[in-house]
Design a protein around this nucleic acid. Structure first.
Lengths: 181, 181
DNA sequence: GATCTGGATTTAGTAAAGGAACTTAGCTAT
DNA sequence: ATAGCTAAGTTCCTTTACTAAATCCAGATC
């Protein structure tokens, strides 16, 4: 669906979407995590048009999210496995799944449970403060311009953000969630 | 093009993408979090075609992720604010941003820092075990069919998953990340 | 009364999605 | 021996969505 490239945005969300945000791509990665790694298996599982699947796989390989590795089954065939970069996407995938679990689940319950191998407990994505180590709610979070911030697409917000130590900005940082009034 | 709807997948990732996964939609939500809530401001910030923005806003409002609220500026105008459902999407957005920060950042550094209002520490999305409370790495995580699992699109993986207490499945659960050999 | 502004809608051309058939090359069942 | 099967695509065609630019509209401002 992509005409506009997001790769030149000064925004990590946009740059992420540019790599894995196309229609079908996150589902292809989901299948890779669940062990569905071959063209026909992915195609049958998702019902994705073969042409689109071929394009998406090529894009994901090109960006180093998947790697195309040969295996033998008579003649040489190929599997698509996650690279380290791809495996690192799991947190985002779980966060997307969690949101669907919370807001889009029917009466039957969630389709998939994700659990910790150690204790069997359910695994969920949460925002954690690197400093105090606590899980943080979404109303105590602020955005601040980072060193890579610059004027351009996706940065209308710059004037609203508190900048780093050297640059000027508003006195108050921008809360990412409005406080209830 | 008639994009395939993901709403009938038995997969929370697919159902999430069906609501917020269209090209541009996550960036519109990002702007909403950062306080850019008016049509022209979003349009100018992202450079999104006006027609597409109008469609996306309508879709997000329809699904209850944003709400269209009137405000007065001479005549009545409208702002698009996050609902609770929309605000709950922040964890997923941060997870996507984190991945871009780690894998797609240039030499200048990250465009945006997200910090904890309390202590000022950086905030990151992590997978947490609900049982033991620990952050879990992506190689100690398993998928198991949940109560809402069923045969259908996105569920070729069912035979590979350990089912709940009442149903049969393989003895070993499926690790979401392959163990290194 | 002309222009500006916010919030869109319309129009028109182009790029991409969807669906189905076709390709290739080794293996297998008749 | 040949017909069929399989995996991994590729090709072709139709339909739809995206992008860009122009237009609309009503109140405010010059």
């Amino acid at each position: 669906m992509q005409r506009t490239s997001f790769s030149d945005f000064a925004c990590s969300v946009a740059r992420t979407l540019d790599v894995v945000g196309e229609w079908w791509s996150p589902l292809i990665l989901r299948d890779a995590f669940l062990g569905v790694t071959r063209f026909d298996n992915i195609q049958k599982d998702l019902g994705i048009p073969r042409k689109v699947l071929a394009e998406r796989l090529a894009t994901l390989v090109e960006h180093g999210v998947l790697e195309r590795t040969p295996y033998r089954d008579g003649r040489v065939r190929y599997e698509y496995h996650l690279t380290e970069k791809g495996r690192d996407f799991l947190t985002a995938l779980i966060a997307l799944m969690n949101w669907g679990d919370r807001w889009l689940t029917g009466p039957k319950g969630v389709p998939l449970n994700v659990t910790h191998s150690g204790c069997g407990g359910n695994v969920e994505a949460h925002m954690i403060c690197k400093c105090c180590g606590e899980a943080v709610a979404n109303d105590v979070i602020e955005g601040q311009a980072g060193p890579g911030a610059r004027i351009g697409k996706g940065t209308a917000v710059l004037g609203r953000l508190r900048h780093g130590p050297t640059k000027k900005g508003p006195e108050k940082p921008t809360p990412l969630v409005e406080t209830k009034s």
